[in-house]
Nucleic acid binder design. Sequence first.
RNA 1: CGGGGUAUAGCGCAGCCUGGUAGCGCGCCUGCUUCGGGAGCAGGAAGUCGUAGGUUCGAAUCCUGCUACCCCGACCA
Length: 566
Amino acid sequence: MRWSNLHTPTLRDAPADAEAASHKLLVRGGFIRQLHAGHYSLLPLGWRVFTKVESIVREEMDAIGGQEFLLPAMHPASLWKKSGRWDVMGDEMFRVTDRKGAENALGMTHEEIFTTLALEITSYKSLPQIWYQIQTKSRDEPRPKSGLLRVREFAMKDSYSFDLDQAGLDRNFALHHDAYVRIFERLGLPAVPVEASSGAMGGSGSTEFMVPSPAGEDDVVRCNSCDYAANVERSASALPVVEDRDLVELTKFPTPGVRTIAALEAADGGAPADHQIKTMVMVLDGDVTLALVRGDHQLNLQKLQDGTGAIDIRPATPEEAKAALGAMPGSLGAVGVEGTRIVADPVLQGRSGLTTGANTDDWHYTGVNIERDIAVDEWMDLRDVSEGEACISCGEPLEIVRCIEAGHIFKLGTKYAEAFGAHVMDPNGTQCPLVMGSYGIGIERNVAAIAETYHDDNGLIWPAAVAPFEAVITIVSLKDESSVVAAKALYDELKAKRIDVLLDDRDARAGVKFADAELIGIPYRITIGPRALAEGEVEFTERSNGETTRVRIDAIVDQLIAAVTS
RNA sequence: CGGGGUAUAGCGCAGCCUGGUAGCGCGCCUGCUUCGGGAGCAGGAAGUCGUAGGUUCGAAUCCUGCUACCCCGACCA
């Protein structure tokens, strides 16, 4: 490709509303343009990177025996109703009514469709199967953000495995796990597999592949001493035992103006935060539920959702809290509450001498014995793990790292097979539901994650495996005829050797060309100028470290190929 | 969904408070000079001021509705 003919509108300034490095640089470098919130056009450079990432994913899927499909993006509502997800997905699913008034869904994922196709698998002899596609997914995200990192329309490689039994699923899951490790290695992403929640997709064995980045949206709890790593939504830590205070009598005491945990610590008759119960009034699928955690802990909404199986989950309004318990937030508690579901974090189990709101404005209880005074319906892990707490497997302090979720694999089991009646005959002649797994990688998000991982003040620094071009030949001066001739010859030779090479033949000043080449992040630059050329040499510059060396012009092709393939 | 902010030329912004028919930088076009790290000079093109309505002799500017986009929050009781 000749740069003079390449549509790459590079910008000196990033759009003011861009925050994430990948967002700024992909826009500045002319890789992407926003159409509207959460929808981006990929320009030629962006598309080239996309196709390279896509190819790597495809190769690794094919390598574990995956078969590529292409399924419709729009589905009849009936399939989603059959699996129950028409309701579960809520506002996140785009719904389209056609001219006949029939309801349709834009696919967020394709379990329903692949399972329907799997109805034609009828014998255990046909198993196992791995089916996949790379296709557009539509998700009405509440808040698209950060360029390509969170969008409403994106390409995802989603694969599905079908097996006769759990052992088969475990094998296919392991195959995918290893394929994902290889994919991220080839993409240059330092992705870490972590335990995760399966969310609305349903399933178990959920493993996310997380790339550390400040632009990420997930917090990962990680141990530096052992290999424990988990999404905070799923994480655990070991806590030191808190010695209960010797307050056996349930006592109501006045706390005028006290509305927060911190204020209650300081108040007359108050208590340290780890001797308080924090009472969160939540509304789960329309019903008020009290979620109790220790005063110094934070409620994790995903844990509450996973633990209760609720679909719609939100904090109650102050008015709802008052209607349910009789007091405004700040004086709420679960002591003596009946007829309302109460769930509590196990850290509170067996505790006594606790302090909590009395459901009368400006009053609290002390001496609360949780088993005696609070009718807890269920104990479930509800709290966030904090930085520095002890690792459950080795006891060393945990750290919390912000990450981008680059891939997600999990075991679906027989949920979809049962809903759709996807059965096979086993060797004994018994009908068995297919045991399924589901595995996803977002292509654009991985492009963005690579951009987040590899850039500097001058622009992007693509790994050669995904770079839009592996090398750029920069002609310092178009006026110098021998430069032009040499550059053209080198360009033809590299193309013949199947190197992705860009020839910067624009009639621009050298500084502009150098700056643009760095901005768009081409890993290797061959600079052809009269100075070196007079001595039969060209300059070879590595984008990643900025180092420039002189190379004999007849040796440059071999050196470049060696660099690109290393 | 709650809160905040923004919308003026391809990009980044000023002008708005205090109404009088739009300006700056970058980019773009032409010419001359320049030419190894985002050139200089001269000339030039380009804007329904998000949108609908209102007030007014007159609206980018004041008022109202709508829309779009961005940021924060959606546990800290």
